[in-house]
Simulated assay, not measured.
Amino acid sequence: MKEITTTELQHQLENGTVLNMIDVREDEEVAQGMIQGAVHIPLGELPERLDEIDKSKSYIMICRSSGRSGRACEYLEGQGYDVTNMVGGMLDWHGEVE
């Protein structure tokens, strides 16, 4: 499984890199803040919302501590998607949130 650290992701965003990010946390967790530009698809809804994810693009998966996003990566890789897990999750994120 491919991985990216929160620091690497923050640097890429600060440098203007356009990234596709999916936050798989629950509603009450994302209410506390999400990384700007991330799309919210709770982990349990991934199977029925695959039509919202473009197989021709790469995605960075985000959750609270990187456990659920890791499971999301495993599932999506099995479906043929190009995904990367943000290691450390939002607990390790020091950038801005919206």
Rank of each mutant, 00 (worst) to 15 (best):
I22R: 09
I41A: 02
L13V: 04
E29Q: 11
I4S: 07
E14M: 14
M21P: 06
Y59H: 15
V97K: 10
I22W: 11
I4R: 12
M21C: 08
H11D: 07
E77D: 11
V97L: 13
E14I: 12
D27G: 01
W93N: 00
G33I: 00
R49K: 14
G37I: 10
D92T: 09
K2M: 03
I35P: 04
E14A: 15
K55Y: 10
R64K: 13
Q12D: 08
I41G: 04
R68M: 05
E3L: 10
S58E: 15
G16V: 08
S65Y: 06
T84L: 12
G44E: 08
M61Q: 09
Y59P: 12
T84W: 11
G95M: 07
D92F: 11
N85S: 11
T7G: 04
H11G: 03
A31L: 10
L9S: 05
G67C: 01
L19P: 03
V30D: 01
I4Y: 07
L50F: 11
A38R: 02
E14K: 15
E74D: 14
N20H: 14
T5H: 01
E77H: 05
E14N: 15
C73E: 00
D23F: 06
G80R: 10
G88W: 07
G33D: 01
E3G: 11
E8R: 14
I4T: 15
K57F: 03
E45H: 02
D27Q: 03
M86W: 00
R49G: 06
R49M: 12
M21Y: 06
I22E: 09
L91N: 09
G80L: 10
Q12K: 15
E48Y: 08
Q12M: 14
L9M: 13
T5G: 03
Q79A: 09
W93G: 01
L76F: 03
P47Y: 13
R49V: 06
K2V: 01
L43A: 02
D27H: 00
E14G: 07
T17H: 15
M21V: 07
L19E: 06
R64S: 07
G70L: 09
E48L: 05
R49P: 05
Q32M: 14
H94L: 14
S69H: 02
C73G: 01
G78Y: 08
S58W: 08
K55Q: 15
Q32G: 08
S56T: 12
M1H: 11
A31F: 04
E3Q: 15
